[in-house]
Design a protein around this nucleic acid. Structure first.
Lengths: 343, 343
DNA sequence: TCTGCATGAGCAAACGTTTGCGCAAACAGG
DNA sequence: CCTGTTTGCGCAAACGTTTGCTCATGCAGA
């Protein structure tokens, strides 16, 4: 029973393999009656086309879309990754495509893994996350003409590929406006060293909102920590909070940083939101559970994942189409970590 | 350049395709010198074997291992899923195997997706999570002789398949002993309705520890909520905490439930750990961020994932080997949500 | 009746790889 | 010199599918 082939259908129907194939794919001139008969036999036999064979003959694809896990610790930090994959898989399943996760073996680079996938045609398309301002992966895939979608942009505005991103520019502008209206004037932006593109947009969103407001009383400190070092992160935050002219409002580039601020502030006896307002970005599950609840922006990873899937499927089906973009507007989630400026 | 085939190597070396194949796979009688030459040519040509072709001829496998996402919302709750996939992918990558995630399309059942994968040989093996006491997926794969590993056991002790699990029995016994030593006598077990196997083992671990202690003063309430309904969950907890003979210690089946207890208790003005001790299981990221920090057991998902990968690879390579099991002992993580019994 | 054309369906090649079988050459033993 | 064995390698089939080409049949028009 496992694995009825097209030959079995041919034998059963008394037709040739070619005719059966055409009846199933709907390619050739096949009368409706024959087509019906073939399909009913195929159904009763539980026929499923062998993907490897289809892929080999080049007619059809591998039926897979790849996602490259950028490093061994991928996902240890991004706790929304589970639902992201889930949504991605769901979106692709609608098109009959499976998602495959490519890890990076010891001693190989991410780019070499991608090259490998492209060369062996192990996937019909690729999804790239964690885009940085200048991203060699994007360049490579673009020159290869291989279908891909990035989750996150690159810095070049005219990038000719499909992407899905959340609008950090808008969110950080909105956060500033809100905090300014609450009386805050001394701000800090807690950011990371790595040149990820989301850093760029969120920073520019903040700077642009400050400029737009044109309030000379507004001051901004930008402090930086490495993305993944929790210790360094805490040191940086401690230094910031220990300053005599401590900011009254901190915008963190993402929730992981904001939650660290909450913790350090608690240790230092700084009350939130009375003495300090903190705003994050992403709305990871922990943000709701922290005390006080973290004010943040929900980046709706699920929606972004589904969009990515759609874009990639469209690209695979029609490689020549003009590039498509989706910019998701994050939804503010107002919890208890922000309030009026002290004093 | 993308896609040098074995023919190119044959032409380049002046050998036949068969000889090249044998030289590369190391199967036939090939002198060392020839092998060297073939491999160097293959390297300079950037040759990568076409997986589809290998899979088709049956000699080699599909190069994929599947993980079935059991439902559309998979991972929305389990925030460690990202690092789980990451570790799994890493473990498989060592064997040159990729991980693929199969979502369940609208209107299909999980079992039908699994059947499909087995029938089309889209994967060489399968990883099953969320095992329940009686699991039709396990039965199906076992009768098919298809390689698979479960993360979590089924109830039958003599199950003849490979599994990796965390020792909830031991952990819950240990939790009881610790709380009993702190003076607690009135216990509650907060559990779920679904017959997942981990529920069974953790419950039995607790019951067995109580029986072993033989203290007649010990009382245990078992309260149940649906696994995923947050509202029902909170109702159940509220009812429990509102009782006149409220327990002084609550063991939650997993951290999600324990964190809900923390929240409800806070709303009801019950101080933790002064009035109530709470212990969870899994050590999800939010457990560290909750206030007070949640005392729990670290189930080391990463290690379990790596073990699962190893077991599955071994099974694929040697289908006839006796079944292997790995039982990971969870590590207690003592935070601030437990303490001496009140009064 | 002959030509032209549409229709329905089959033959066979092709995709890239593995592998059973066989063959020639080299070589060893008698 | 004859026989038997090893060595090194090639031929060709096979995996399941798609697709260009061909072919027989039927039918309409001249």
């Amino acid at each position: 029973m496992p694995g009825a082939t097209i030959k079995d259908i041919a034998r059963e129907t008394g037709l040739s393999v070619s005719t059966v194939s055409r009846a199933l794919t709907g390619q050739g001139r096949i009368p409706e009656a024959t087509r019906q008969r073939v399909q009913s036999v195929a159904a009763t036999l539980g026929y499923m086309p062998n993907r490897a064979a289809q892929s080999l003959v080049g007619g059809l694809s591998s039926g897979f879309v790849g996602f490259v896990l950028t490093d061994p610790g991928y996902g240890r930090e991004d706790s929304y990754l589970g639902e992201y994959f889930s949504s991605l898989g769901q979106g692709l399943a609608e098109a009959g495509i499976d998602l495959f996760l490519a890890a990076i073996p010891q001693g190989q680079s991410e780019l070499s893994v991608i090259r490998n996938i492209v060369a062996t045609r192990r996937a019909d398309g690729l999804i790239l996350a964690r885009t940085s301002e200048v991203d060699p992966r994007v360049d490579f895939l673009a020159t290869q003409g291989f279908p891909f979608v990035t989750h996150g942009r690159i810095a070049r505005e005219d990038a000719g590929h499909d992407w899905v991103d959340t609008d950090g520019f808008a969110a950080f502008g909105q956060a500033f406006d809100m905090l300014h209206a609450l009386g805050h004037r001394r701000f800090a932006l807690l950011t990371i060293e790595e040149p990820m593109t989301f850093r760029l947009h969120r920073t520019e969103g903040l700077l642009s909102a400050i400029a737009r407001k044109g309030d000379p009383a507004v001051a901004l400190d930008v402090v930086t920590s490495p993305r993944y070092s929790h210790d360094r992160r805490r040191d940086v935050i401690r230094d910031l909070l220990a300053r005599p002219d401590r900011p009254t409002a901190i915008l963190a580039l993402f929730d992981g940083l904001a939650l660290a601020v909450l913790q350090v502030a608690e240790e230092m006896g700084i009350a939130i939101p009375r003495d300090l307002s903190v705003v994050g970005f992403d709305n990871i599950p922990s943000a709701a559970l922290a005390r006080p609840g973290l004010t943040t922006f929900d980046s709706d990873t699920c929606a972004a994942a589904v969009q990515s899937a759609r874009l990639l499927v469209a690209r695979i089906r029609n490689p020549g189409a003009p590039p498509a973009h989706v910019l998701v507007r994050p939804r503010p989630v107002l919890r208890a970590s922000h309030g009026p400026a002290p004093g």
